[in-house]
Design a protein around this nucleic acid. Structure first.
Lengths: 247, 247
DNA sequence: CAGTGGTCTAGACCACTGC
DNA sequence: CAGTGGTCTAGACCACTGA
């Protein structure tokens, strides 16, 4: 194992364990050189790793800082129902329909690594854009996380936002399965549409920076008006890079 | 502008202009040091940029090589209808329905940067899995590219695969809009379903490594059987890195 | 074995930030 | 001004590949 990877791992641990909280200024490169007794390049390789992972940001002339969780985390479609609509000048809000304990559906159990009949807490909201109901969201997950999400304000803030700003998670990726389904009766009723009408069903699982799935959402969107946009980038080969390059 | 960025740009140009073709072995770091008259670190910074972009791969003890386009490009949902189904042991094939010139629909014109009434070539296929028709694909684009795609074998190979292996493009990312729509009459007829049944509509635009949109696809999938999976990664400050410290 | 990339050291100068 | 990160040099040893 190379030295810089050790250092990177060590620094990452300090951040992930919240010894260094968001906004914290890391020791300068000079100090890290002293602490780990390595040269500057080695320190910088380690920092580069944290940087590209989004864990720290570097400010020329000031130092490196633990990133604050994004105000509006952008992970594709889950960038946030509220955020993305507000960004387009719409009025977006949600209404909690229920919060209750249910047996984890198969896809949730699979995503979260639960036993198939384990209990999860399910938070259901209906989401409106300019007074029109266009989404029916069920977010499921283990009791503690979901409790916290529910106790925050899921009627005005996106789950991803809550996870980052209120619960201290740092999101890394989201895996989504998307398909088209006829509207189930319950959903149809809440959205004021006919049962069986085409709905976009998005099943999403956000993972934190340590690769842990945090919760599992099943989101039903009304048809074609508001497509969900994904941006998929080519997987590039693996490497550790000495530095950042621009562009 | 920093030196290594200049060098990175220069090398990138040679690759993109096909002076250095896929599989070509780049000059060694030592040779590049000589050519550009810089130190090794600077050379490596430049190469790191190309590497994370997926343009080159490095093999310890051998050298750096221009990447060959992937045999099965994996850019999310467009990883390939055929490929992904065959990977699951299914029999997958397609049948060309038509190849004709049409006026670019609005979303195509927008994606490709065309005038709204410009002509594009549209290749339509119906796709089968184990003899069941489950997809109706229309791929549109400028004449030359689409002509080449059509003359390759769009009945057995995915468009992304053709673009990379037959036409020499290197894909970088795909932007997809996904929504649920009632089946249009034409599509319903080809898929043997009722008009108005829920379909997943995927509008995708693949971009090459230079950021040029190559074509624009409108894909209709049958409902819930085969969800399309997206994996969205957090946008990091500058670039994505596959490397993970977790190891 | 020689050639290659992977890693590292010990310095250096610059541009930027804040006092 | 001192402190910081951004960039660079010149040299070094290692592990890996292939003849």
């Amino acid at each position: 194992m190379s030295r810089f990877k050790d250092i990177e791992a060590e620094l990452r641990q300090r951040i992930v364990r919240n010894e260094w909280t968001p906004g914290y200024k890391l020791p300068s490169e000079a100090e890290l050189m002293a602490e780990f007794d390595v040269s500057r390049i080695t320190v910088r390789q380690a920092l580069a790793g944290l940087h590209t992972t989004g864990l720290i940001e570097k400010v020329n002339g000031k130092g490196s800082f633990v990133t604050r969780p994004s105000d509006t985390p952008d992970l594709g479609p889950l960038r946030g129902f509220y955020e993305s609509n507000r960004a387009r000048g719409k009025h977006a809000r949600g209404k909690v329909v229920s919060l209750r304990t249910v047996r984890a559906p198969a896809f949730v159990a699979r995503s979260l690594g639960l036993e198939s009949d384990e209990k999860v807490l399910a938070l259901t909201t209906v989401r409106y854009v300019d007074e029109a109901a266009i989404g029916y969201f069920v977010i499921m997950g283990r009791e503690p996380i979901m409790r916290s999400v529910a106790e925050a304000d899921p009627e005005t803030n996106d789950v991803m936002t809550l996870l980052e700003t209120r619960l201290g998670y740092r999101l890394q990726e989201v895996v989504s399965d998307v398909s088209a389904v006829p509207a189930p009766a319950t959903v149809a009723r809440h959205l004021g549409i006919d049962e069986g009408a085409p709905l976009l069903r998005l099943r999403s699982t956000p993972y934190d920076i340590q690769g842990e799935p945090l919760c599992c959402g099943e989101l039903f969107f009304l048809g074609g008006d508001m497509p969900v946009r994904f941006r998929t980038v080519r997987q590039s080969p693996v490497m550790a890079r000495p530095e950042q390059s621009g562009t």
